[in-house]
Design a protein around this nucleic acid. Structure first.
Length: 760
RNA sequence: GCGCCCUUAGCUCAGUGGUAGAGCGUUUCAUUGACAUUGAAAAGGUCGGAGGUUCGAUCCCUCCAGGGCGCACCA
């Protein structure tokens, strides 16, 4: 026996068609997208978002699907509400991540390093890889149903964004916020570059803790291999035990490679209760030691080179890699009788690079930094607590923007983490010793900049390549987050859309926004949807950059979602093999089902657990909705007179449905998407289908028993509730709802597409 | 060390100051004209523990236990 046609909803044959329909109708464009045809009606606003640009390191994973779905639900809703709606797409060059990926691939297939290929050829390879990734990502975003305005697509490393980066660098440099400094940075000897504080992963390690004799003192250390240059011995000024030693006093001590002159330093940084209360310091390889050296103007000497090998200061151990040196040095110390005891169960934490897993070696290096505490004059009153013209700094801007409520973070608990992070924030090292990324827009002639020397304009230029001979560009590139920090406004036409005012004294940041430009219309953006793992990397830095360049916030609300977990609560990742590929699974169950599974039950900020079972459950729901439509169609509901007078029972159903509409609407407005989706799901299946339709069947079938008015009333009620249910469900399950709408409603509606039908 | 979060049905998670919800799983029954990707029903929870506030607490407060996370960090 043959099956009835279209018994099952077939996502495969519908989803592509529906997306094409939307794109061709131009409804995703900010100009034509809203239900009112572009210009927001009175009382309606403007709604804008940028897509957190996915890294061009490969394909999208389920976490992207989550972010895209949550965003798309809201964007589609706002569009149906009649707002002038922009959702701006783009991709991120992801500097270090992309470079590393390509380097690995090349090494695997050709056995060559980037140095073998040379900068130019290597960058060509990276660009080719990035282009391919980009194309895949764009394809995937369409598959996900993302209603993005493709006419405004951007890339963090394209020409416009490069202009923005150069301009931003220049203005910050001129304001004194970007400076070249010699500071302790996190050096990754494996990748041969600095990494930011936030890219550090701390790992616990059990190791030996050596108590060494240093003249009359005993010092404790886990890293004897760094101790060659130690000539300062530090203790707390009020430590009774060492009261007889005076600050600045010099002592001769026998040390690893012979006698050295040790200088006593009394400093409160030492904790008298830890170890022996005395330590020697290694300012070139430890941030805390460096602070002391900086404060007390002490010498600092590099002991370990950038490849992790000991320098000549180590004497006989010079050129030995630190991983091998430790045991050798301990042997020597023992033979000299300098090892007092060894604690074998010492647990401490070592810094590793989250990019490549290499052990970080703190190094004293010259790098470019953004100062988070240097004062400058505020250029606007837009952030509560900071007055125009008053002195402020980047830290304060980041703090006040959230504290004052200009940026609302959902869920609220992330505010605490954010504040905590800012309190401890140090200057941001923005230079990277890699090739892929925005080259630092600084040119030198004759000599390089250094923090002790002021260079003239004959020696340094910032911004654009200067005319004339002999200029050489800084070889480094910028931290990828420098360009993504500009994202909300670099994508909207900054700096061109923001003319600098000639007569302003605050030339560096101040500018006038060109009326009618994207920047004027859409910035600050309404909402940012992103995962909590980049709260500091990105969210905080956007607030920093926008605060400085526009005196404003980048977005009014940040909706922070979690990290997708598998059934065992493990983070999904390709390397673990537990990842669900959103597109692969959607081929089986349909993208609508994947989207619902990502939304329902996933409270803001918490980690959603996604399993194939859950997706299958919502696939069943899509089929259910499809079959409701089939049933109603069989019973001539869609061709019914929608103006029929409703009998009391049907009017009651309508009234109850009004309450559902109100709840769904209010829940979306409050970003309770997980509840909103659940509400409409329940209503459609377990109230409308199971109760109202089942009950109405009698009325439709046994015409003999029913009054004509009853039947007409029931049909009209079915038609209206179902039509509006499709509207409520559309942001969550856009494909199946549009397919049903096209088949049964479009010919009778003056609006052609469900996606641009006004919200009910 | 400072701070945050979680602990609810067998599993994974929502939720609320007033008889507890979803997905999946389990049990029973129904079914050839929307849908077995179904329907009807059932089993299953003293909402981590102990106090407190309240007419009433799973929800608010305090403490405790277990788990997770952020930041800082000691040589």
């Amino acid at each position: 026996m043959e099956e009835a046609p279209n018994k099952k909803y077939d996502p495969g044959s519908n989803e592509g068609k529906m997306y094409q329909l939307w794109e061709e109708a131009g409804i995703f464009s900010a100009e034509g997208g809203s239900a009112s045809g572009g210009n927001p009606p009175k009382g309606r606003g403007v709604f804008s978002m940028v897509l957190p640009p996915p890294n061009v390191t490969g394909i999208l994973h389920i976490g992207h699907a989550l972010m895209v779905t949550l965003s798309d639900v809201i964007v589609r809703y706002r569009r149906m509400r009649g707002d002038k709606t922009l959702w701006l797409p783009g991709t991120d060059h992801a500097a270090i991540a992309t470079q590393e990926k390509v380097e690995r691939d090349i090494y695997k297939s050709e056995g060559k390093t980037r140095h073998d290929l040379g900068r130019e050829e290597f960058l060509r390879r990276v660009d080719a890889f990035a282009k391919a990734s980009h194309d895949g990502i764009v394809h995937q975003l369409r598959k996900l149903g993302a209603s993005l305005d493709w006419s405004r697509e951007a890339f963090t490393l394209d020409e416009e964004r490069n202009q923005a980066v150069k301009e931003a660098f220049k203005r910050m440099y001129e304001a004194g916020l970007i400076y070249r400094g010699s500071r302790i940075v996190n050096w990754d000897p494996k990748l041969q570059t600095t990494v930011s504080d936030d890219e550090i992963e701390w790992k616990e390690e059990k190791t030996n803790f050596y108590y060494l004799k240093y003249g009359p003192f005993t010092i404790a250390t886990a890293r004897p291999e760094t101790k060659f240059g130690d000539k300062y011995v530090v203790m707390h000024p009020e430590d009774e035990r060492y009261a007889k030693y005076k600050d600045g006093e010099k002592l001769n001590v026998e040390w690893i490679n012979g006698p050295v002159v040790a200088t006593i330093v009394k400093d409160k940084a030492v904790d008298p209760s830890f170890g022996t209360g005395v330590m020697t310091i290694t300012p070139a390889h430890d941030a805390a030691d460096f602070d002391i050296a900086e404060r007390r103007k002490l010498d600092r000497e590099q002991v370990i080179d950038f490849h992790g090998k000991l320098l000549p200061i180590a004497g006989e151990f010079a050129d030995t890699h630190i991983s091998k040196a430790r045991s050798l040095i301990v042997e020597k110390l023992k033979s000299k009788g300098l090892v007092e005891k060894t604690d074998e169960n010492y647990v401490h934490r070592i810094a590793t690079s989250s990019r490549g897993g290499g052990v970080i070696e703190p190094q004293l290096m010259e790098q470019w930094f953004v100062s988070v505490s240097k004062k400058f004059k505020a250029t606007s009153d837009k952030i509560n607590g900071i007055k125009k013209g008053s002195e402020t700094n980047l830290k304060e801007i980041m703090l006040k923007a959230v504290e004052g409520g200009q940026v609302n973070i959902i869920p609220e608990r992330f505010k605490n983490e954010y504040f905590h992070w800012i309190e401890n924030l140090r200057d941001w090292c923005i230079s990277r010793q890699i090739w892929y990324g925005h080259r630092i827009p600084v040119w030198y002639r004759k000599q390089k900049i250094n923090n002790n020397k002021q260079l003239t304009t004959e020696e340094i230029r910032v911004g654009e390549k200067p005319e004339g001979e002999g200029w050489e560009q800084d070889p480094d590139t910028l931290d990828t987050w420098f360009s993504s920090g500009l994202w909300t406004f670099s994508t909207l036409g900054w700096p061109d859309a923001c003319r600098q005012t000639e007569n302003s004294k605050l030339k560096t940041q101040n500018c006038e926004v060109v009326p009618g430009s994207d920047l004027a219309v859409f910035h600050p953006t309404s909402l940012l949807v992103t995962a909590y793992d980049i709260l500091f990397f990105w969210v905080a830095r956007m607030i920093l950059m926008t605060g400085f360049f526009l005196g404003d916030v980048p977005f009014k609300t940040a909706y922070i979602h979690g990290i997708v977990r598998d059934k065992d609560k493990k983070k999904m990742s390709k390397s673990k093999g537990n990842a669900i590929d959103p597109l692969g699974i959607a081929e089986t169950y349909g993208m609508d089902a994947v989207r619902m599974a990502l939304v329902v039950g996933n409270a803001p900020g918490s980690d959603p657990v996604i399993s194939e079972d859950k997706i299958r459950g919502y696939r069943n729901f899509a089929t259910k909705v499809w079959n409701i439509a089939r049933f109603l169609n069989m019973n001539e509901v869609f061709t019914a007179d929608s103006g029929a007078k409703l009998v009391a029972r049907d009017a009651l159903h309508m009234k109850e449905f009004e309450a559902v509409k109100a709840r769904v609407t209010s829940l979306i407005d409050r970003y309770q998407l997980h509840e909103a989706a659940n509400e409409i799901y329940h209503y459609l299946w377990h109230t409308f289908a199971d109760k109202i339709v089942e009950e109405g069947k009698l009325c439709l079938r046994s015409d003999a028993d029913a009054e004509a008015g009853d039947t007409a009333s029931t049909r009209a009620m079915f038609r209206e509730i179902f039509r509006e249910s499709l509207i409520l469900l559309h942001p969550f399950m856009p494909f199946v709802t549009e397919a049903i709408y096209q088949e049964h409603f479009a010919p009778f509606s003056k609006d052609k597409l469900l996606a641009s039908t006004p919200w009910c």
